[in-house]
Simulated assay, not measured.
Amino acid sequence: MDKKDLQIAHELQLSGRLSNQELAERVSLSPSPCLRRVRQLEARGVIRGYTAIVDQSALGYPITVFVRIALQRHDTRTVAEFERRVRAIEEILDCFLMTGQRDYLMRVVARSLEGYERFIRDVIHTIPGIGSIDTSFAYGVVKQARALPARG
Rank of each mutant, 00 (worst) to 15 (best):
residue 88 A to V: 01
residue 116 Y to C: 02
residue 83 E to R: 15
residue 112 S to N: 09
residue 131 G to L: 00
residue 131 G to K: 12
residue 102 R to W: 10
residue 99 T to M: 10
residue 116 Y to H: 07
residue 107 R to T: 01
residue 131 G to R: 14
residue 89 I to N: 12
residue 100 G to W: 09
residue 113 L to P: 01
residue 96 F to Y: 13
residue 107 R to L: 08
residue 125 H to T: 10
residue 123 V to W: 09
residue 112 S to Y: 08
residue 121 R to F: 03
residue 90 E to A: 10
residue 83 E to N: 12
residue 88 A to F: 02
residue 104 Y to D: 04
residue 85 R to Q: 09
residue 114 E to R: 15
residue 81 E to T: 14
residue 107 R to H: 07
residue 123 V to T: 14
residue 90 E to L: 07
residue 87 R to N: 14
residue 102 R to I: 01
residue 118 R to D: 08
residue 110 A to I: 07
residue 134 D to F: 00
residue 112 S to A: 10
residue 81 E to D: 05
residue 116 Y to D: 10
residue 81 E to Y: 11
residue 134 D to E: 12
residue 120 I to C: 04
residue 125 H to I: 03
residue 123 V to G: 04
residue 85 R to L: 06
residue 122 D to P: 01
residue 125 H to C: 10
residue 110 A to W: 13
residue 107 R to M: 12
residue 134 D to A: 04
residue 101 Q to Y: 02
residue 84 R to S: 03
residue 95 C to R: 00
residue 130 I to T: 00
residue 112 S to Q: 11
residue 120 I to P: 00
residue 122 D to W: 05
residue 111 R to Q: 14
residue 115 G to V: 07
residue 99 T to G: 14
residue 119 F to A: 13
residue 83 E to Y: 08
residue 90 E to R: 06
residue 86 V to E: 12
residue 107 R to C: 09
residue 111 R to C: 12
residue 81 E to L: 14
residue 126 T to M: 11
residue 112 S to L: 07
residue 82 F to V: 03
residue 132 S to D: 13
residue 114 E to C: 03
residue 104 Y to L: 03
residue 126 T to C: 11
residue 87 R to S: 14
residue 130 I to M: 13
residue 122 D to Y: 10
residue 103 D to K: 01
